[in-house]
């Protein structure tokens, strides 16, 4: 359960990856710094040592320009090899937007991203339904809760074959879905054509998570809301529980 804010537990240590074309690295880092129980450092894409970290975040942006496919080249960076090992050892890995695309290309999460159905970049606040509140990234939310976070992408149209989808659904790996403000998962509420309105998924083990919307953009009421704080709070709780801090 959530540690009391009064206990002086050591902070959860976040690493925020910088690929040369990342552009949400500072936003994500700044958001992390607003949590009393967290500290963040940047991870240059050529770094390979992650052993001081509890959670690695792949932020939004255009990793290597993304001219071929989003995230296609980033997966071959030295850092991604280290991230693969980090994840295999149970470390928490979260990809936001472009970071999600990189995790898909790297095979750390199943499926692939296509261009948005309407072929346009979309930047807008959307409603998301929390489908699984048992993951290390969403435990502060309730199942069925509707949260608001912005999307900002050109390739967020999630695809996976039928078998893969059935497996995702059966294992509770679909974590977030696009929905209307009342929580109904409808075609109209699907901004990009994603299969089954999928906005975020995790791996089978639950320690690797990708989401297209940007939680770091909704961590401050002044600039759009606070619904994204739950993601970071969840990670902090999980880290504390795992390390018995």
């Amino acid at each position: 359960m959530a540690a009391s804010p009064h206990t002086a537990a050591p902070p959860a240590r976040f690493g925020v990856v910088i690929f040369p074309g990342s552009n949400c690295d500072a936003d994500t880092h700044d958001a992390i710094e607003t949590f009393a129980g967290a500290e963040g450092r940047y991870l240059w894409h050529k770094e390979t040592r992650l052993d001081d970290l509890d959670c690695v975040i792949l932020p939004g942006g255009f990793s290597y320009g993304d001219y071929l496919r989003s995230g296609a080249i980033a997966r071959f960076s030295p850092l991604m090899e280290a991230v693969r090992r980090f994840a295999a050892e149970g470390g928490l890995v979260m990809g936001i937007c472009n970071g999600f695309q990189v995790l898909l290309e790297a095979g750390l999460l199943p499926g692939a991203m296509q261009q948005n159905e309407k072929l346009k970049f979309i930047c807008r606040l959307v409603s998301l339904k929390v489908e699984n509140d048992q993951t290390p990234f969403t435990r502060r939310y309730r199942q069925g809760q509707v949260i608001q976070a912005p999307i900002a992408h050109h390739e967020g149209n999630y695809f996976i074959d039928e078998e893969g989808l059935a497996e995702l659904e059966a294992n509770g790996q679909v974590v977030l879905r696009y929905c209307d403000p009342e929580g109904e998962v409808t075609q109209e509420a699907n901004p990009n054509g994603s299969l089954a309105n999928i906005a975020g998924i995790c791996n089978r083990e639950g320690n690797v998570f990708g989401m297209m919307p940007h939680p770091e953009r909704v961590c401050d009421a002044l600039v759009g809301g606070t619904d994204g704080r739950g993601v970071f709070d969840s990670i902090i709780d999980s880290v504390r529980e795992r390390s018995g801090r």
Binding site: L68, F76, A112, F159
Partner: peptide
């Protein structure tokens, strides 16, 4: 490995 994404 790189030029195409075999999933799609």
């Amino acid at each position: 490995k790189l030029l195409a994404n075999p999933i799609i």
